[in-house]
Amino acid sequence: MTDAIASAEKLEQALRADGVRITRQRAAILKVLSESADHPDATELHRRARELDASVSLATVYRTLAALEAQGIVHRHSFEGTPARFETADLPHHDHIIDIDTGEVVEFRSDKIERLQAEIAKELGYDVVRHRLELYCRRKDQD
């Protein structure tokens, strides 16, 4: 079983547990979301899902995302200046660089940053429970 299929099934199980019926339209949304390697917004998810099932409505996309978010299965990211974007919560922890010129979102992981954050929290008498790091960047000239 591929990771995308496993992820789609996990999303479906979460919706069923919340009492949400899995319709053809929702199945298309779940498939698109589980296969997304980027951070699509609701409009982009809608566009992609309509390629699988033309009857998918934007309202169904929003309702499905809200139910998945409430279950903690999907993360909503509200990057400055862009519509909310979504990704499945089954990914390992990572941080984001947002290209302020193109809107591209780049995932990265840095052990150095993780250690520094834990060190700072410890110095101030805290343990890090969770965190989110977003760097808003502009690509350097490629001269």
Rank of each mutant, 00 (worst) to 15 (best):
T64D: 04
D41Q: 08
S36T: 02
D90A: 14
E12L: 10
A28Y: 05
T82S: 14
D143G: 10
D111T: 11
L124P: 00
R24M: 11
K112H: 10
A118C: 11
G103M: 05
V61C: 02
A27D: 03
Y136M: 12
A42E: 06
V61E: 04
V106R: 08
S110A: 07
G125L: 09
I113A: 07
D41N: 12
K122L: 12
V20E: 07
G103H: 06
R139L: 00
T43H: 15
D111R: 05
R63Y: 15
V105M: 05
E80I: 11
K112C: 06
K112F: 15
S110V: 04
V74N: 10
I5T: 15
L15R: 03
H131Y: 11
H96C: 03
M1S: 13
T88I: 06
H96T: 01
A37R: 07
T82V: 13
Q142Y: 06
V105P: 02
H96K: 04
T82W: 14
A70S: 11
I29R: 07
Y136A: 08
S7A: 12
D90C: 07
V74M: 11
A118T: 06
R21E: 14
R132M: 09
A17W: 01
Q117N: 09
L15A: 09
R76W: 07
E134C: 01
R85F: 03
R132Q: 01
D141P: 04
D90W: 04
A27M: 12
R132G: 00
I98Q: 04
S34M: 05
Q25V: 13
V56N: 00
T43R: 14
A27G: 10
D141M: 11
L116I: 10
E35K: 05
P92H: 10
R16K: 15
